[in-house]
Design a protein around this nucleic acid. Sequence first.
DNA 1: CAATGTCTAGACCGAACGGTCTAGCTATAG
DNA 2: CTATAGCTAGACCGTTCGGTCTAGACATTG
Lengths: 189, 189
Amino acid sequence: MTAVPARDRLVRAAASLFRRKGYDGVGLAEILAVSGLPKGSLYHHFPGGKSELARAATLSAGGVVEELVNDAFADAADFREGAVRTCRAIIGLAVQPDGVLACPVMSVLQAASDEPELRRVAKTVMSGWSACLAGHADRLGVNDARGVGEHLLALLQGAWILALAEQNGAPLERLATRLAAGEGARVFS
Amino acid sequence: MTAVPARDRLVRAAASLFRRKGYDGVGLAEILAVSGLPKGSLYHHFPGGKSELARAATLSAGGVVEELVNDAFADAADFREGAVRTCRAIIGLAVQPDGVLACPVMSVLQAASDEPELRRVAKTVMSGWSACLAGHADRLGVNDARGVGEHLLALLQGAWILALAEQNGAPLERLATRLAAGEGARVFS
DNA sequence: CAATGTCTAGACCGAACGGTCTAGCTATAG
DNA sequence: CTATAGCTAGACCGTTCGGTCTAGACATTG
């Protein structure tokens, strides 16, 4: 039947809803409705309530994205190829049938202003992504790998925001094209 | 006395609070407390309530940022110089005494999922910024001005997100440094 | 069998939410 | 003066919020 454990169903429902409406835009009732569980289950698995669930969802989503980045770079000949593949993979993550969804970290970032633990988790996941990209840059012989990793992360996050605002994956597609454009990959002419 | 008209005080308070906690994270009570006005005033100036106020705040903030960009590019010798100045100006906007605040558009972007009009305004403002940067790129003789404008906007938004997650302006500072680095301004080596 | 620990189920609570509505203050117009 | 329009003031409403708590289902263990 429900092969997926209750805890996982909660994490997935929360992550999905947060990405659509943001942490403060989603009520417990909605999370429970989507996961098909009663309130008692939520507070059994997450005694810390909504905040603890959000932390788990953010960490989980962070891992998913990092895996996706590693896959994109796994068989990349150089950093640029990995970057393009990563960008295309993120398009698949962002663009869903019912619209463009936000980055999971961004979706909890503002609510974190009065939730220090959630803030810490968001920062950790984001730093992890930066380090992950920097690691691939270094491995592939890029100079100033840390700077380049951060630069690419900023580009991806920024294009994701533009796509979110437009509710259209095009900004991410165009970024992929620009990244792929080879030697012309300078920021400016 | 209160030289600032009531309507403006509402818009400013709302914009400031939204940037700190996001649209859904701020209650009317808080906006009214900051602006020092009763509920009646809000619904007199904004019959559409919170949503209409958010639209006004987003539009207003959009104008402020666009002016700031135009100032940054006003006496720039080339596009790179304008980009660096813009980035530094945004640091001033993002980094406040009580922490790093979000981009005003981003702060309402997620709540816009069930507020079509707010979504439209957010998209309009963001497109305006992109067009503004593209205009300066074109004026300064950059090839593919639209693409470069969008690219810079993505970089700025992305670095802003990183700064928000870290609660530290460093990612924006490093972007400015990278942009200023001249010929090395390629995305990758 | 009984006892125990895990998890589901949902009624219930006080607080905060966005929004409505009436009353009254103030200033300009006639 | 009175009349009227613009705005302030805040009580009040129904709804939804996150969170607590008791009851019971169910499987495991002795």
